[in-house]
Write a protein that binds this DNA or RNA. Structure first.
Lengths: 193, 193
DNA sequence: CAGTTTTGTGAGTGAACATTCACATACTTA
DNA sequence: TAAGTATGTGAATGTTCACTCACAAAACTG
C-alpha cells in the first residue's frame, strides 16, 4: 500500500473535516473545496468516499505502529516506556490535530465492513504496544499486581481517550501535552507499587 | 418539558438507530419505519429531526439526574456510593441499550448550537454526581490524595466510557454489569488508600 | 517536439434526504 | 351522535448527496 503525495493531501483534508464535523460532515463537496479543485477530481485519486476513509485509517495505523515501535526501543524501564509512548502521541496530535479522528474512529462505524475492519485494526495496534509494557512492569514489580494488566491498560487507554476528547471539545484550547503529562503522572502514581 | 407517550416511543426508536448506526443512520425514513408509520407522521410529534435529538438528550439528562440522586441518598460511604452510581448506570443501559448513545453523545456534534448545548449539559450532570463523592472520599481519608480529585474522576469516567464502548462494539456480547463491576473493583483497589 | 499519461473541469444523473400539504381516519367528549 | 381534536396517509417539494462522463490542459518521456 503506497500512498501518493496527492492522496496524502486528500487524506489530511478528510481528517480535518472528520475531526471538526464528523462523518456526516465529510462530503465530496467540502473535501474538494478544501483541496481547491472540483469534486470530480477526487475520483482521479480514490475510487470513492469509502476508500478515502479506509486509506486514511490504514495510513494512521501504519504510522502509529512505526512511531510507537521507534520511541521505546532504547528504553528499558516500563514506566519510562509509558511516558515515551504517551509523549509521542501527544506530540503527534499536537502537530496533526486533523488526525484526532483516529482516536475516536468508532464514530466512523457504519454499515461498511471494511471501515469497521480498519477501525478494529487501529485499536488492536494500540493494544499491541501497551499491554507488553504493563506486563513487563508487573513482572519487574514496578507496577501494581493487585489489578490485572488488562484492567490497568483499560484505565490508561480510557483516560487517554477522554483527555483527547476534552481537548477536541475545548477546540484545542489547552496544552494537550502539559495537561496530558499531569494526568499520566496521576495515573502512574496510582498504578506504581 | 413534558414528554408524551408517543414522543417517548419515538425517542426510544431514535436512540436505537443512533446507537446502532450513528447520526448519519438516523433518517426520517428509518425512524418512521421503526415506528410503523409514514415519515410525515413524525412531524405531528416533533418540529423536526433536530428537536427529536435535543428532546432525547434532555430526557436522558433529566432521567439520569433523578436516578443518580436517588441511588446514593441512603449511602454514606463514598466507595459504596461509587459502587451504587455505576451499578445504577450498568442496570440502566442493560435495560435500555438503545440509549447508549447518551454515553457517546459527542458523536452527535454537528453545527447545531442547541445539540451541542444539550451534550455539554449531559456531561456536566455526570460530573456533578461524581466529583462530590471523590472529594468526600478524599476528605475522609478513604481515597488517595496523591492524585487530584479531578484526575481521579477523569480516570473513572474515561474507564467507564471505554467499557461501554467495548460493550457496544462487541454487539452487547458480554455482561456489562459483571465485567463492569470487576473493572470498578480494579479501579477502587488502585484509588483506595 | 510529438505522443502519452496524469490530473483537472463542468455539466449532468439518479438516489436519498428533510420537510410540507391537502386530505382522511380514529379517539374523545359534550 | 355530533363536533372537535389528535394522529395518521401519500404524493410532492426542493436540496444535497456520491458519483460519471466527455472533454481539456498540464506534465512527463522518448
Amino acid at each position: 500500500m503506497e500512498i501518493k503525495k496527492r492522496q496524502l493531501e486528500i487524506i489530511e483534508a478528510a481528517g480535518e473535516i472528520l475531526t471538526e464535523s464528523g462523518l456526516a460532515g465529510l462530503t465530496t463537496k467540502k473535501l474538494a473545496a478544501k483541496m481547491g479543485f472540483g469534486e470530480s477530481a477526487l475520483y482521479r485519486h480514490f475510487k470513492g468516499k469509502e476508500e478515502i476513509i479506509i486509506t486514511m485509517l490504514q495510513y494512521l495505523n501504519a504510522d502509529m505502529d512505526k512511531r510507537l515501535t521507534a520511541c521505546v526501543e532504547n528504553i528499558n524501564d516500563p514506566v519510562k516506556k509509558l511516558d515515551a509512548v504517551f509523549n509521542n502521541q501527544f506530540d503527534f496530535f499536537q502537530q496533526h490535530p486533523q488526525f484526532l479522528v483516529a482516536v475516536f474512529s468508532e464514530g466512523l462505524m457504519e454499515e461498511s465492513k471494511s471501515i469497521n475492519a480498519a477501525i478494529l485494526q487501529l485499536m488492536a495496534t494500540k493494544r499491541k504496544h501497551l499491554l507488553p509494557i504493563i506486563n513487563q512492569g508487573q513482572l519487574q514489580g514496578i507496577i501494581e499486581t493487585t489489578a490485572p494488566a488488562e484492567d490497568i491498560m483499560h484505565i490508561i487507554m480510557g483516560s487517554f481517550r477522554l483527555h483527547m476528547l476534552q481537548w477536541r471539545m475545548s477546540d484545542f484550547a489547552f496544552d494537550v501535552k502539559k495537561k496530558g503529562n499531569k494526568l499520566m503522572e496521576s495515573i502512574l502514581t496510582l498504578i506504581k507499587v
